[in-house]
């Protein structure tokens, strides 16, 4: 199954929820924001929201930043 994640295409071989995908990538779910096909997926929907063929995911994190 083909996905675009943070602008890069990748293949995964099984159907997963957003939460499962984040764990699969080895990321602490508490630290990120997920956008799927342009919509922010609320945290409490991650368990139900399934990642499908050709989905575009953006996985973002709050970092230090002020004036740049």
């Amino acid at each position: 199954m083909k996905l675009t994640v943070n602008g890069k295409t990748e293949e995964i071989d099984q159907v997963m929820t957003v939460l499962e995908y984040i764990r699969f990538k080895g990321i602490d779910p508490r630290t990120v924001v997920v956008q799927k096909n342009g919509e922010v997926i609320k945290r409490d929907h991650w368990e139900k929201e399934v990642v499908r063929e050709n989905d575009r995911l953006e996985i973002l994190r709050m970092v230090g930043g002020g004036s740049f």
């Binding site: 943070n6 990120v32 996985i59 973002l60 930043g65």
Partner: peptide
């Protein structure tokens, strides 16, 4: 306090 949002670099 300001913070920024960044794509995660896998």
């Amino acid at each position: 306090v300001t913070v920024a949002l960044r794509r995660i670099d896998f």
